[in-house]
């Protein structure tokens, strides 16, 4: 087991190296010039050239890459071109909101979607099944920002139950923290509810047709027990997969949701950094997200053996 984890972690290194090269090349090939952005609106071309050399952007690409990788190896993410802060500090200050949003979103999604999916599978073909499936298809047919605006209009503006925007750190009190987290995570969870509900329904359906369920039924076991002890447990692997991939894909939704709700998280930071051509910050962020992705994939694989003892690593 431990050997497997180590092997997987080692295998992640080339993946991250490829990400590093891809990101680096992509940024250097983009037309925007961070020096021009930093030098300000009325800077002369000489001033811009000065800034460029100060940032080391006038050096050949391999040299720039070597410097960056060298710094990374010593744990130095570098300094942001714009924010005059070290990137490590910058990212640390932004993790809490994004993590909270992601956790709350997945929590809502899992708690709503799995029961919905199980019930839909159990009442396969009924009106309830059709409604759950119909609504779930609708769930990923609407852009996230539209869902956000609608929820804000209903729950924040018309009913006044929740604040319109903003984030309050956990240190500012649990009540305010949760109060401000509800609408954004609800917005973001819609697509995941749809996704997980569908997956759950499909896998539970498949399991329900298996022989051992029939056997259990024939033995006269209680339906609820059959459903949750046998069916759901055996359907867990694909569900866990989809939840895991959902977490990995969450960052895309986070970008939009954080913009709509003015949440100072990593998604906003990324968009700001891209628009400002803040190379070192973008590089660090993408590398970090990729690392998280790889890690989550590993965790998913490890949980498989938890649900299905037949899978051994």
């Amino acid at each position: 087991m431990l050997g497997y984890v180590l092997r997987r972690l080692l295998a992640a290194i080339p993946v991250l190296a490829i990400v590093a090269v891809l990101v680096f090349l992509m940024l250097r090939l983009t037309p925007g010039d961070p020096a021009a952005v930093i030098a300000g609106d009325n800077a002369s071309s000489e001033q811009i050239a000065q800034v460029r050399s100060k940032l080391g952007l006038d050096q050949p690409l391999p040299a720039q890459f070597a410097i960056w990788i060298g710094n990374l190896a010593t744990g130095n993410l570098g300094e942001s071109f714009f924010f005059k802060k070290s990137i490590g500090e910058l990212i640390l200050g932004r993790i809490e909101p994004t993590l909270s949003l992601a956790a709350a979103t997945m929590l809502i999604a899992v708690c709503l979607a799995i029961p919905l999916g199980v019930v839909a599978a159990y009442r396969h073909g009924s009106w309830l099944d059709r409604i759950v499936m119909g609504v779930s298809v609708l769930g990923f047919s609407v852009p996230v920002f539209v869902i956000g605006y609608l929820l804000i209009y209903i729950f924040a503006i018309t009913l006044g139950w929740f604040p319109v925007q903003g984030y309050q750190p956990l240190s500012g009190g649990l009540g305010g923290y949760l109060h401000r987290l509800v609408l954004p995570s609800l917005t973001l969870s819609v697509v995941y509810i749809a996704l997980i509900a569908r997956m759950t329904r499909a896998s539970v359906l498949e399991v329900l047709n298996e022989d051992y369920i029939r056997t259990a039924r024939a033995k006269g076991q209680v339906e609820r027990k059959i459903l949750f002890r046998h069916a759901l447990k055996n359907a867990a692997v694909p569900i866990v997969t989809v939840v895991g991939i959902g977490i990995a894909l969450l960052i895309g939704g986070v970008v939009v949701t954080e913009s709509v709700f003015a949440i100072p998280g990593l998604g906003r930071l990324t968009v700001d950094a891209v628009l400002a051509r803040d190379y070192p910050t973008i590089q660090a962020l993408i590398l970090m997200f990729s690392g998280v992705y790889v890690l989550i994939n590993l965790l998913i694989d490890l949980t498989y053996s938890l649900f299905d003892p037949r899978i051994r690593h």
């Binding site: 490829i18 992509m26 895309g252 891209v274 997200f289």
Partner: peptide, 24 residues
């Protein structure tokens, strides 16, 4: 496959943002 792993590890929307800014 290693290249695909790398591409896949980058969040799709960030990759898209970067590609858009690559071109006009």
């Amino acid at each position: 496959m290693r290249l695909m792993d790398g591409l896949m590890a980058i969040p799709g929307i960030l990759l898209a943002i970067a590609v858009v800014s690559l071109f006009r």
